[in-house]
């Protein structure tokens, strides 16, 4: 781990200014992913801005009936929030399917969205990785790909996004609120927050340098029955092979997002129109450009069957 200077931010605006002005600065909140990566020098900030003291840990209703979730709301607290459990249970379920209680006690809402891939080649500095070191190549392409993405990938990178929470956020049409160094704020649809790797897999989000996520905003509750179905090898504390976030209305229509199969939460609003009539068509639409290897081709069948299972869960929950 590289030596770094450290400060505790006292205001959001000041934090954003410092992040833009101090060379090599990074924000740290929960630290559960950043510190992990700093220990193996995949992240090597020269300066850390600890934002934990900022007033960004509230969950509040929005005027239009939605929910504004502060960036520093811990995963545990978000999952335990009565409003989330009542009105957005897919989010509570996704949160609880992720990581471990200890990690959820530290991990924050914004940090969860910004966590980096768990590709084992990314994590091994002795292996080629275009995400870690642009232009070095991708060892995973010729290697073990069972945990990797099958859609949205490129010849440069096949890493999957590891978050469960983000998949639920995506199905809920979440937006992130940010502040930039000049004090300006903006909202970014979650669909637009993460980039696909293309030729530049090291560029993972559309945030500007120093731009700080301050909140995630959920629109008014979508109603319907919520299911988050995560499929993994062991029963807990493991990353998804495939996950399905489903919000299903009584008429069978609804929304679907997939996790574990793409570099970002994977949803296709056009494809999901077929949910009531032909759920497999939804998966076929989502995975139409899938590029698989013998290691991970099973994810196509698994995604179909997991959606079937999620729909069955939703039906029986009514």
């Amino acid at each position: 781990m590289k030596a770094f200077t450290y400060e505790r931010a006292t205001s959001t605006a000041q934090a954003a200014v410092r992040a833009a002005s101090v060379p090599g600065a990074k924000f740290i909140a929960g630290g559960t992913n950043l510190l992990d990566l700093m220990k193996i020098e995949i992240e090597a900030p020269a300066h850390l801005i600890d934002v934990n003291g900022l007033d960004l840990a509230k969950i509040e209703p929005t005027p239009d009936g939605g929910l504004r979730i502060g960036a520093l709301v811990r995963n545990t607290d978000l999952a335990a929030d009565a409003g989330v459990r009542r009105d957005y249970p897919v989010l509570a379920r996704a949160l609880l399917a992720g990581a471990s209680p200890q990690l959820r006690n530290r991990a924050t809402t914004a940090g969860n969205l910004l966590q980096r891939t768990r590709c084992p080649y990314f994590y091994d500095p002795d292996q080629a990785c275009n995400k870690r070191e642009p232009g070095s190549g991708c060892a995973a392409l010729a290697g073990w790909r069972r945990m990797h993405a099958i859609v949205g990938t490129s010849d440069a990178c096949i890493a999957a996004h590891p978050s469960d929470m983000a998949v639920a956020m995506r199905v809920l049409d979440a937006e992130v609120e940010t502040m930039r160094a000049d004090g300006s704020t903006r909202r970014i649809a979650l669909a637009d927050l993460h980039r696909l790797p293309g030729a530049t897999p090291h560029l993972e989000t559309t945030l500007d340098a120093g731009e700080l996520i301050t909140a995630v905003v959920l629109p008014s509750p979508p109603g319907g029955t919520h299911v988050y179905r995560k499929v993994r090898d062991r029963a807990s504390y493991a990353f998804a092979l495939v996950s399905v976030a489903l919000v299903r209305q009584p008429d069978g229509s609804g929304r679907v997002a997939l996790g574990g199969i793409a570099p970002k939460p994977w949803r296709d609003e056009d494809a999901e129109r077929a949910l009531a009539s032909d759920p497999h068509a939804v998966v076929d639409g989502l995975l139409k450009d899938a590029r698989t290897s013998p290691d991970n081709a099973f994810k196509i069948t698994l995604a179909r069957r997991t959606l079937d299972a999620a729909i069955a869960d939703a039906r029986s929950a009514r």
Partner: peptide
């Protein structure tokens, strides 16, 4: 493991269990 993958370092900080390996002392 020093990487938040095993829980052997679990302590209670601020009333909550956390992985002490994934938190800086200065924090």
């Amino acid at each position: 493991c020093d990487h938040g993958q095993c829980g052997a370092c679990t302590v209670i900080a601020g009333g909550r269990r956390i992985n002490a390996c994934l938190s800086l002392a200065v924090m």
